[in-house]
Amino acid sequence: MGGVSDRAAARAAKSALSQQLAAVPEVVGIGLARRGTGYVVKVDLADPLAARRVPRDVDGVRVVTSVVGVVRPL
């Protein structure tokens, strides 16, 4: 299972994961988050059930999820 990674590896994993999850409407955001001395990919979800569609790691980089709800413009 993946762990914390350097920023370059996390960016590459974020890019790959963004393409993989592009068709999942419950994914409302994908970014990087610091964990200790490294980075993980953080996926924001509108629905907790969507977490099962998100892999736990991408190319050795850990992926974490957070349920933030539906995102609407102000």
Results as ranks from 00 to 15, higher is better:
S18A: 14
I30Y: 04
R34F: 00
A33T: 10
P55D: 10
Q19G: 15
M1F: 11
L17W: 01
R56H: 11
V40F: 07
T37V: 13
R62D: 11
L17M: 02
L45T: 03
V28A: 04
A10H: 00
A22H: 06
V24Y: 10
R52G: 10
G2E: 00
T37C: 06
P25Q: 02
A51I: 10
R34I: 00
V68C: 06
V43K: 01
A12V: 09
A9P: 02
V63W: 05
V24F: 13
S18K: 11
V24C: 11
P73E: 12
E26L: 04
V41D: 00
V70T: 15
V54L: 08
R72F: 14
D47M: 09
G36E: 02
K42D: 08
P48M: 03
A50W: 02
V28R: 04
T65D: 05
V58D: 05
G69T: 08
A9T: 00
R56E: 15
G60M: 01
L45P: 08
V64W: 13
K42E: 13
V24T: 08
V40S: 11
D47G: 02
A12R: 14
P55A: 09
G2F: 00
S18L: 06
V71P: 06
V63T: 06
L21D: 04
V28K: 01
G60R: 01
A9I: 03
G2R: 01
V58I: 05
S5H: 04
A46V: 10
T37A: 15
V54D: 07
T65W: 02
R52N: 08
A33F: 02
P73L: 15
A13E: 07
R62M: 12
P25R: 06
D57Y: 10
P73Y: 09
R35I: 15
A10C: 01
I30W: 00
P73K: 12
V4M: 13
Q19D: 15
L49W: 13
R35V: 14
R7V: 14
R34V: 05
A12G: 13
A51M: 09
A9K: 08
V71G: 08
A46Y: 05
A12S: 12
V71L: 12
S66E: 15
V63K: 08
V71Q: 14
A46S: 13
T65F: 07
R53P: 03
A50E: 04
T37F: 15
G38Q: 01
Q20T: 09
G3T: 04
V4C: 12
V71C: 06
P48R: 06
S18C: 04
D6Q: 06
R11P: 03
V63F: 08
G3L: 07
A22E: 03
L21I: 05
R52K: 10
A13Y: 08
K42I: 14
D47R: 11
P55C: 05
G3H: 04
V54W: 10
A50P: 03
P73C: 11
G69P: 03
T37M: 13
A50K: 04
A51N: 11
V64K: 08
S5A: 14
R62T: 10
